[in-house]
């Protein structure tokens, strides 16, 4: 009952907390050309754990912004304009906060749960693994 596969179908969160699950989901998203959404999700988690005193943290915030939000990438398209503006302004003012990507991550996660995650659970990549 508590096999990895049972956990994967429980929630997106359980899937992403499992190494094999996250890896398989990533392979699926690569094929669907939306792997950036998953990388962004993990980047948000990684960023939240960073030390705000470390000068590296501002550089990482800028890197996340540049790579996923500033351009018209798949992540940017799924975010609300207000969310993007908030992050842009925080970076501009160099007001770095551990929670500054939380809202964006929540929005991306909701979209993943509704779309990619459901598609994954019926995909041949998943069914073959099962």
């Amino acid at each position: 009952p508590d096999s990895p596969l049972a956990r994967w179908t429980k929630s997106l969160h359980s899937l992403l907390g499992d190494q094999d699950g996250a890896h398989l989901f990533r392979t699926f998203l690569e094929r669907e050309k939306c792997v950036d959404t998953l990388d962004f999700w993990f980047a948000c988690n990684g960023f939240r754990q960073m030390d705000l005193q470390d000068t590296k943290t501002l550089r990482v915030a800028k890197a996340i912004y540049k790579r996923y939000i500033e351009n018209n990438s798949i992540v940017a398209k799924q975010l609300k304009p207000a969310t993007k503006t908030y992050i842009r302004d925080s970076i501009k003012k160099q007001q770095i906060d551990s929670a500054m990507f939380d809202q964006a991550q929540t929005e991306i996660q909701a979209t993943m749960e509704e779309n990619a995650y459901q598609m994954f659970l019926t995909s041949d990549i998943y069914l073959e693994y099962v």
Binding site: Q19, Q49, I64, R67
Partner: peptide
């Protein structure tokens, strides 16, 4: 100094689930 890409990659990797 690490490049921006390296920093981003490091950040993503740090959040990935580890082997059990």
């Amino acid at each position: 100094i690490d490049s921006e890409d390296d920093l981003l990659q490091e950040c993503i990797s740090s959040a990935m689930p580890k082997k059990k």
